[in-house]
Design a protein around this nucleic acid. Structure first.
Lengths: 340, 340
DNA sequence: TTGAAAGCGGTACCAG
DNA sequence: CTGGTACCGCTTTCAA
């Protein structure tokens, strides 16, 4: 059997309660006694059992993250890898650990949320959802379960959330292409109805508003492959754009592939800016310009806030935090500005 | 307060013990009573508290994975992303959850292992270590803590491990290039001293042994950037190879970049095969041939075995499982075989 | 300041 | 087949 608090108490000739106090760093324990207890703990390599501890204290020191992806879909999404890495970095040094779950269906979601929250496996949750109108959020709220949303809570401003302003981000990207002298700037978006895509389309449109350039918006499924196909059609059309704002780096990679097939030079014949600023951007010749969402900062804010909530501090004026985006300019948009 | 087993018992007018039995699916509970209890649970949305449950049952249903990486180093390593995704896929459907920790230093490792195992936060561990001679492994063994190593246990065959045969994998890759008619096949390896790199070098050498081709081995740091630099030198040298076995897809991507700079055509002027078969392979024009480690299978085996150990089954003839590798042939090595 | 004791919410044995 | 009951290992009053 492993060594318990009882054992330490017996060894140090004190009561179990005292051992517990020493563990909790209680100042009122006499120094001599404390030393004896500490020594006994050290000698027997004692560590308190987290299960018992959390049964009493009502805290597991576990933060839950539920990823909502198709089977195997995590591996080819650097966004989530980055997200998880950032969370781990932040949690590192705190007493919290990360409990990671992935579900592949809505039914799974529902189940896992119940499991996570009713069973008290975790103290709080980080949600990563573009579609935050979700019924689960309502449930979490009504259960008064601590959570922070990374994403857009839509019209619900009662929940803690941290996010980028995707409209502004797309505006930034589009303006940049305008500044670089592109004249027929299009946008390759994702499926419409998905908030992140819709927001970026809106930003793109806002940037062009007032100018003389008409909208040129296309939609494709996520991923490099379907983007490549879409790009083929776009670039083959009679009235092809000379620059594209692309929904994310993966899709941009598909566009680059299509451009190369058609002997279009980036950035001379086709300017490109995308989103997420993943390491993929470095892997394209000349580099891919991309809007950084500053995920690190987002995650830091989200975690910090969640931990504060867990510590009972929940009195903020603004429950919604917007982390600014920034544009990393690389070769794919660095055309020498055209002189009229 | 949340609803407990007591409450359900009261509501269904049975003893708490009976509720527990129903929960455990005990067949001996009378159907009528069982229905009453189930109904009460459903009506009140009862879920057992995992903390209490695991205090008694000695099981947390948590599997630990400790990643050993420099800060932020997870995000640009698709290997780990894939690994985590696979683990989640396997655990999905089992009652187990994943507890993920990352440490950035050896001291951190030591601490986290203590925390993980002494505090009984997790039921078992999956270790991912190339250098498995580690003192931590000894500690886990001596504590008789359930764990499975993904990697090479070196000369310790008392521990459960699952791995590829990297020597055979590299041999496979090299043979393939020979078969495709390349005459000056080199290898771009990682830092020597790292087991995975050394093993692959050995496999490369074994494939060439007996033939007339001399070894051409270079080393570079991991990552696309340093591989690209190394490749520039290699391909610029007077006696440049006409094909390269490259340590991993990332490095191969660097090589492709260098080749493109130098107007070398892949696969005509330079054949390439690398390892890991990540999605990067699809992103290179024509595709990058790569040896798949079948991580999915590795993870499945590792998890399955760990779960079995947790279930008290630990009587295997072979504690070391080797998962075969397979070559995914793509454009980068598909040169029409040269006729003499 | 320290010790005794009452739980936290379950599980599982034992008796009936 | 069901209920009573003794814990699991720790935290936290309440007295002494």
């Amino acid at each position: 059997m492993r060594v318990t608090q009882q054992d330490i108490a017996r060894i140090a000739s004190v009561s179990q309660a005292t051992v517990s106090r020493v563990l909790a760093g209680d100042e009122k324990v006499e120094a001599a006694i404390r030393d004896r207890v500490v020594e006994a703990m050290r000698a027997h390599n004692y560590q308190p059992d987290v299960r018992a501890r959390s049964l009493r204290s009502k805290r597991t020191n576990l933060i839950g993250l539920v990823l909502n992806r198709p089977m195997g879909g995590l591996s080819d999404d650097p966004f989530f890898a980055g997200l998880v890495a950032e969370i781990l970095d932040v949690l590192n040094g705190s007493p919290y650990h990360l409990c990671l779950d992935m579900v592949t269906s809505v039914a799974g979601q529902s189940y896992i949320y119940d499991e996570m929250l009713r069973t008290r496996r975790v103290d709080g949750l980080i949600l990563v959802e573009s579609e935050a109108t979700d019924f689960r959020i309502g449930r979490l709220q009504q259960d008064n379960f601590p959570f922070v949303l990374i994403g857009n809570p839509l019209n619900n401003n009662q929940i803690h959330s941290v996010d980028n302003d995707n409209v502004a981000a797309a505006e930034l990207a589009t303006r940049h292409l305008v500044d670089m002298g592109y004249k027929k700037i299009g946008m390759l978006a994702g499926r419409s109805g998905v908030t992140v895509s819709d927001d970026r389309v809106a930003g793109y449109q806002r940037a062009l508003r007032g100018g003389s350039m008409p909208d040129r918006i296309w939609h494709a499924d996520f991923g490099a492959v379907s983007a490549r196909e879409a790009a083929r059609n776009i670039l083959n059309s009679g009235d092809a754009p000379d620059a594209l704002v692309v929904l994310d780096d993966y899709m941009a990679l598909g566009v680059v592939g299509a451009a190369r097939e058609m002997r279009l030079k980036v950035p001379q014949n086709l300017g490109l800016v995308s989103f997420n600023d993943t390491h993929l951007c470095e892997m394209i010749d000349g580099g891919l310009s991309s809007v950084s969402l500053n995920m690190g900062e987002i995650v830091r804010v989200a975690c910090a806030r969640l931990l504060q909530i867990l510590d009972g501090e929940d009195t903020w004026e603004n429950r919604r935090v917007i982390v600014p985006t920034s544009l990393s300019v690389r070769g794919s948009s660095r055309r020498e500005a055209v002189l009229e």
